[in-house]
Design a protein around this nucleic acid. Structure first.
Lengths: 97, 97
DNA sequence: ACATCAATTAGATGCTTATCGAAATGTCTA
DNA sequence: TAGACATTTCGATAAGCATCTAATTGATGT
C-alpha cells in the first residue's frame, strides 16, 4: 500500500497546519517524530527536548488538530506518528501558489 | 535562465517564512501576487482585499523580511513579486521532515 | 483500596501580533 | 512652493499563544 489517496485540505486546515509549523518547538517535534517510521512516545520526546509535560501535551494537541500527527494510546502512554500524507497535501497547496 | 541556484534557508528564515504563511491574510496576498508573473502594486491589492493601507504595509513588510516577496519601488509606488525560489526552498525543507 | 506514574486540563503570566486611525515621510505635478 | 497622493511609521488596543506550576484524570501494579 502506501499513501493511496491524495488529500484535499480545507482553508481552515491549511491555516491550522501553517500555524502548527510556525512554532520552532513544534517544528522540532515533527522532525523528531518523522525521523523514523515507528511511533514515538512522550518520554522519548522529553529525553531529547527540554520541555514540561504540560507544554508538550499542548503542542502535540496542536499538531494533532492540524492533522500532522496521528496519536496512538496504549494504557497510560501516548505515541505519535507523522502523517506524511497531510504534510504532502500542505506542500501541494504551497506549490499551487 | 530561471531559478539557477538552489537556496539554503537558515533556521531563522524557516521560522520567518512559516510565520508569514500562518496568517490567512498574508496567504491570500501571496496567492494574489503569485497569480501572474508581473509585479503587483498596492492599489491592485487593495482593490481585491479589504484592508487598510497601514495593515497592508505591515503584512508586506513581513512577507519581505521572510524573503517571500521582492519589492520594487518606483517613485511613490511599490510593487511586489513572489520569490518562487524561496517558497520552493521552504517546501524542500518541509519535504525533509 | 492505595500508591504511583503518564498524560491532560485548569489557571495564570508575559510576549507577540493583527488591526486601525493619525501622523509622518516621500514623490509628483501644477 | 504648495497641494495631492502613496506608502510607511507611530501609538494604542485587543486577541492569541507559549509556557509554567498545580490540580486532575486515568491506568497499572501491589
Amino acid at each position: 500500500m502506501g499513501p493511496a489517496k491524495r488529500i484535499e485540505l480545507s482553508e481552515e486546515q491549511i491555516h491550522l497546519i501553517a500555524k502548527a509549523l510556525a512554532d520552532p518547538r513544534r517544528m522540532e517535534l515533527l522532525r523528531q517524530i518523522g525521523r523514523g517510521t515507528d511511533p514515538v512516545g512522550c518520554s522519548s520526546i522529553r529525553d531529547c527536548q527540554q520541555v514540561s509535560a504540560a507544554t508538550l501535551s499542548h503542542h502535540m494537541k496542536e499538531l494533532e488538530i492540524a492533522g500532522l500527527v496521528k496519536v496512538t494510546r496504549e494504557g497510560k502512554f501516548a505515541s505519535y506518528t507523522l502523517r506524511r500524507d497531510v504534510l504532502q497535501a500542505y506542500m501541494d497547496q504551497l506549490a499551487q501558489i
